[in-house]
Design a protein around this nucleic acid. Structure first.
Lengths: 239, 239
DNA sequence: TAGTGGTCTAGACCACTAT
DNA sequence: TAGTGGTCTAGACCACTAG
């Protein structure tokens, strides 16, 4: 436990109780009982409101479920909506080897469309990064990403990473919200050549505008080979 | 206020405080201050923990934001993930007139694929509903929906509604979670004829498996004209 | 009847912000 | 210095569930 290393007097009591309960029920199956509130009052020598504060957090989080008159139990995991992922994560999740070949990585002046999408002014400096991306060695898609240079100082000088989303993560800019549009189309001659398919083959076009809090961190357009790629999306209410 | 009609002794105090604050800050813009906790203690003559319980609920809900040392303020609305919608809702949202023509609506025995997707056994009774759907009079997509007859008793006898999702809503079966897959493809000859496009035109195929709690309420396959339809998806973290 | 969560009180001290 | 939210105490009564 991390708590061993922490100054003992510093840890908040409701946090201590919360983390105790979390580790206690960590591996339990849904429906298993959690300790009763009064039991935790005894064990930690705290007031009941303190225990309730701890348990409330776990209930909001979806780990526990209260049943009046019966007790508190491990909740069944909520079905979750899709994480916002990039190509590397997604292909890895599918058990494929993700590789990328940078075709272009440079500073450009934003055109009207890209400027609007990035919430910038036309002519502002943006990073344009074009990659041919493979899965298990076979061309899968061609991606054009546009990034706000102000948010990513020194990005082009640091050598391009494999995963854009890892880089964003490292800078605390992991997208928290994204709007995607998806269409079916035919490949242009250039796209077909790079993707190694016949000209005018069917492709899936995927555009994304990704935000971290209120900052637009990525605008991208990706064209996928339709014969190799299916897009999966999970949607959830609430949360 | 609803409270006027409610038995005065019945309303829980933290609910009274919560709803008072909700209506008070209802129309306010983000950043507006909410009453301080001690001010509400005075106004309602309750303990501070009761006020905190009320405010906690509004914070979890995303309406309020606490800033230690400063006060409690109206939060900026969270960006939300896409609602799970059907065709009628989606087209209406886009300002188009949604119309449907039922091509088939009957009881069938589930084949292996549909049975698995609906969490049924092969041969179980399912409802198969095929519709040609128009937007502003022009064919937009062809949809095959498969429904669990046990969850929708008398569905076929009641005359087919325009919106499946409205019917599900009315029965308390509005989907809370959905998994979609999206691919690009070419239309079959039959599809092309119904959609009034050239044979082998590019289409967008969209499959959905929608659940309400743990019940599979809809399994569908839809083929959209690529020249008329773009799919939009919003993704959010947490929620 | 004993145990559970739900609600509620009337205080207290703390760190932080703003003036 | 005054006001705010964050944390915490040591009780209390209620409705409900289960044996």
């Amino acid at each position: 436990m991390d708590d061993v290393m922490a100054p003992p007097g510093r840890a908040l009591k409701h946090v201590q109780v919360r983390e105790y309960v979390r580790t206690l029920v960590g591996g339990s199956s849904p429906g298993s009982p959690a300790p009763s509130e009064r039991e935790l009052v005894q064990r930690f020598g705290v007031a009941r409101m303190t225990v309730r504060q701890a348990m409330d957090a776990l209930v909001v989080e979806g780990l526990l479920e209260r049943i009046p008159g019966r007790g508190t139990f491990v909740a069944r995991p909520r079905r979750t909506a899709s994480k916002i992922t990039g190509y590397t994560e997604e292909m890895t999740r599918r058990g494929l080897l993700a590789e990328s070949q940078t075709l272009l990585a440079r500073r450009e002046q934003a055109g009207p469309g890209v400027a609007r999408a990035l919430s910038l002014t036309e002519g502002d400096a943006v990073i344009h990064w074009r990659r041919l991306r493979r899965a298990d060695g076979v061309p899968m898609c061609l991606e054009d990403a546009y990034l706000n240079e102000v948010l990513l100082p020194g990005f082009l000088q640091q050598g391009m990473p494999t995963s854009l989303y890892d880089s964003l993560d490292a800078r605390g800019l992991r997208p928290t919200w994204a709007e995607d549009s998806i269409t079916a189309d035919k490949a242009t001659a250039e796209e077909a050549g790079l993707l190694e398919v016949e000209p005018f083959s069917v492709v899936l076009r995927h555009s994304r505008r990704a935000l971290c809090d209120d900052k637009v961190v990525e605008v991208s357009r990706t064209v996928y080979r339709a014969d190799r790629f299916t897009l999966w999306v999970q949607l959830g209410q609430d949360c």
